[in-house]
Design a protein around this nucleic acid. Structure first.
Length: 426
RNA sequence: GGAGAGGUGCCGGAGUGGUCGAACGGGCUUGACUCGAAAUCAAGUGUACGGUUAUCUGUACCGUGGGUUCGAAUCCCACCCUCUCCGCCA
């Protein structure tokens, strides 16, 4: 949520910046709404003030045993008018709140301006795509060839966009998550947290999934709880309605969780394989930063995600998303894309964003600043990494001609020393 | 799931219809004392939204949402959460 003061005071500039991400701010609609609100609010508060002072007088006079029928009559006359005004005020404030919740974040000034992903800017490529001396297979045929990746049985259990892993590949999947958690906690200074996978609507609103993106979420109607689409939701909401001392910043958390997404708008996209599933695991980094230092924190967080790919010897590139391609809540986003040889392309494996105060304003996540006043802090997060897609990348990049998979050195300690996954591996 | 207790400011904790935005204590800030610190003393210290603007001022907020009343932290209703006991249970 944007700062409503900023909207009032610099409406044309805000509209212009939002236009760069393809969002048409309803300027006149907002102006009308806000002007109406102001008029009703002033009128309401004036009458409330009058009522309060009369009520106070009645109390004082009654205490002295004086007659109050005149005053009672006067205050009674206010009542109907006040009831009407108060409900009008409430309604318009709800409208303004709904409006504010629907406006996306302002792009940071360093974000490249553009309409779609073709305008994204590649910042760097790291590692060279390996040249294979044989026809490469994709992860589906590799995994099914090893009888360790099973989409058919998953469809029987749950439908499309699910997978069952078996044997060494299931273990490799687990190893990846353990490895990532260990690197972030021991080398990058993150505190590991274990969090609920079901959250309430206030949490979803805090990070921006609600109210606009309900169709992307799995909702348990009976309990009005949502399955988390990313650990960002529960971990960021740890600080909802909290005020922390500024010297404890930055707060850095890492969590490994499953993520659940309905993929409602993705019909027909990435239907083959593990790229786009209803359920996948992710190791997520979340930082709460001082507002003056959140962009340093973003660079740092990005480097933490990259570190995993470097340690795994996976070729990747880093992309700065353009204004039109960024998510609703982000002020600036870097994507990391990993090389997938079977598709001869880079595919997203991480997304690292600074949300500035967009989420913290919704959540009222604050710090006490040097003047002793509460001030919104900045929130950041990034995948480090999406476990399922990392598994895909490993299978494809470390495949051998015989269909076996070599295991990168960094993961062998987590695989009981196993160097290669062959059809018989468990 | 059943029974009981409770949810108040940064924290602890008073407050059962009227000047309560809220006693008291702690914390924090500033000042005094001190070479400095501690201790002590004094003063200050909620959030949000308006109006006016270096000031001052109005309104709202005591788990959430309704209701009663001239007036609600205080009374009524519903819901949420926490704790204790019982039941159940990975």
């Amino acid at each position: 949520m944007l700062d409503i003061q900023q909207l009032r005071n610099t409406l044309p500039e805000v509209a212009k910046r939002l236009a760069t991400r393809g969002y048409a701010l309803d300027v006149s609609g907002f102006e009308l709404l806000d002007a109406t609100r102001r008029r009703i609010q002033m009128h309401t508060e004036e009458l409330q003030s009058k009522r309060n002072s009369l009520a106070r007088q009645i109390g004082q006079m009654k205490a002295k045993g004086e007659d109050v029928t005149e005053l009672m009559k006067e205050v009674g006359g206010l009542r109907f008018k006040l009831d009407t005004l108060e409900s009008e005020l409430k309604e318009i404030q709800e409208q303004i709140q709904a409006f504010m919740l629907s406006v996306p974040n302002l792009p940071h000034e360093t974000v490249p301006v553009g309409a779609t992903e073709v305008d994204n800017v590649e910042l760097r490529k790291v590692g060279d795509p390996k040249v294979f001396g044989f026809p490469v297979q994709d992860h589906v045929s590799l995994g099914e060839g090893l009888s360790q990746l099973d989409f058919a049985v998953a469809a029987k259990l749950s439908g499309s966009r699910f997978v069952v892993l078996r044997g060494a590949i299931a273990k490799l999947h687990r190893a990846l998550a353990q490895f990532m958690l260990d690197v972030h906690t021991t080398e990058h200074g993150y505190t590991e947290v274990y969090v609920p996978y079901l959250v309430n609507s206030a949490s979803m609103q805090g990070t921006g999934q609600l109210p606009k993106f309900a169709e992307d979420l799995f909702h348990v109607a009976e309990d009005d709880l949502y399955l988390i689409p990313t650990a960002e939701v529960p971990v960021t909401n740890l600080m909802r309605d909290e005020i922390v001392p500024q010297d404890c910043l930055p707060l850095k958390f890492v969590a490994h969780t499953p993520c659940f997404r309905r993929e409602a708008g993705a019909a027909g996209r990435d239907t083959r394989g593990m790229i786009r599933q209803h359920q996948f695991d992710k190791v997520e980094l979340v930082q709460f930063a001082h507002p003056d230092r959140s962009y340093e924190a973003l660079d740092e967080l990005l480097s933490h995600a990259e570190a995993i790919l470097r340690k795994l010897d996976l070729p990747y590139r880093v992309i700065a998303l353009c204004t039109g391609d960024m998510g609703f809540s982000a002020a600036k986003t870097y994507d990391i894309e990993v090389w997938l040889p079977a598709q001869s392309t880079y595919r997203e494996i991480s997304s690292c964003s600074n949300f500035e105060s967009f989420q913290s304003r919704r959540m009222q996540a604050r710090m006490r600043n040097s003047r002793g006043k509460p001030e919104l802090l900045h929130t950041l997060n990034g995948s480090a990494l999406a476990v399922g897609r990392t598994l895909v990348a490993l299978l494809e990049n470390f495949q051998n001609e015989d269909g076996s998979i070599s295991i990168p050195g960094a993961l062998r300690p987590y695989m009981g020393g196993l160097e290669k996954i062959a059809p018989t591996s468990n």
